[in-house]
């Protein structure tokens, strides 16, 4: 007969059913956390390398600027990539050129309610899957530093929305040929798809849903905000999908621009 109660029980607590197994789940519950962990770690490693690489982020002929470096606000940026001027002057070599926007979008993703689920489950195993005992002895959740910072998601959302507008502006600039006239290439389309995914991700955010109308007690007194809330609620159902899709589109857009900029292959041009 098994004698140990399900962890933790604790001194003084009435005993629970004595089941020694960590979980009795028979499905492959570990597949999803392992898969998500692989994706997240890959993105973290890739983006860290790219952010500190400080080259191959701009294609001058077609005005392709990678989202990881936009906006580029220093004198260290290659000519033409600073659409908003260079208020910060020259950067030392160790400061990433995208230092203004990258912490914002990274913070937006880290504190995002979808990535919190994904990260806590796959990177921190808290819990690794539903009804699977977590390995940690203590748990205080998001009640104290540093994890209560997760509650600042709203303010990352406001800032990320501004970054989204900058990205949309970048996409407009990418409709350009080498002679300065209108042009469309494969890179332009990739940037466009990325913008759609980023907009879907940003607008379907739970914080967006809250500020649009979720905070109201009476929808009937605010019919316009109710309509916005309804719209965001429809998007919000797919927030996790947008989160993952936009992660890959950002990655792919950056890779494509890096490849074209480095001359690994040339951009496929449709118009000009």
């Amino acid at each position: 007969m098994t004698s140990t109660a399900t962890r933790p029980g604790g001194p003084g607590a009435r005993p629970r059913a004595a089941i020694a197994a960590r979980t009795l789940r028979t499905d492959r519950w570990w597949v999803q956390p392992v898969g998500i962990a692989a994706i997240l770690l890959f993105f973290i490693v890739y983006s860290t390398i790219r952010v500190f690489m400080a080259k191959w982020y701009y294609v001058e002929d077609y005005h392709y600027l990678t989202p990881l470096y936009s906006p580029c606000l220093t004198d260290s940026c290659v000519p033409g990539s600073s659409h908003f001027g260079t208020p910060f002057g020259e950067f030392p070599f160790f400061l990433p050129l995208g230092i203004v926007a990258f912490p914002i979008v990274a913070g937006f993703r880290v504190t995002c309610y979808y990535y919190r689920k994904a990260g806590y489950r796959s990177l921190w195993a808290s819990p690794p899957a539903c009804a699977v005992t977590e390995p940690h002895q203590k748990y205080t959740g998001e009640t104290r530093f540093p994890l209560f910072v997760m509650n600042w998601h709203r303010y990352f959302f406001y800032l990320a929305f501004v970054v989204l507008l900058i990205n949309i502006y970048d996409a407009f600039l990418a409709f350009r040929g080498p002679d300065g006239a209108f042009g469309v290439g494969l890179g332009t389309l990739i940037i466009l798809v990325n913008i759609v995914a980023l907009a879907g991700y940003t607008l379907s955010c739970h914080a967006c849903r809250h500020v649009m109308g979720g905070r109201l007690k009476h929808f009937s007194r605010n019919p316009v905000r109710y309509r916005f809330w309804t719209l965001v609620s429809k998007l919000n159902v797919r927030h996790g999908t947008f989160a993952m899709v936009s992660l890959f589109t950002v990655l792919f857009t950056d890779f494509y621009i890096m490849a074209v900029s480095a001359g690994w292959f040339t951009d496929l041009r449709f118009i000009n």
Binding site: Y113, R116, K117, Y139, G141, T143, R209, H210, R215
Partner: peptide, 29 residues
């Protein structure tokens, strides 16, 4: 604040209430 949004409550709800998306997250906000 103890809730870390891992959504298991929503997964097991037999009434398919969106506990996390419609209840807990709005309360957190």
């Amino acid at each position: 604040g103890y809730c870390n949004i891992t959504k298991c409550c929503t997964e097991v709800c037999p009434e398919h209430i969106k506990i996390t998306d419609n209840g807990i997250i709005p309360m957190k906000e």
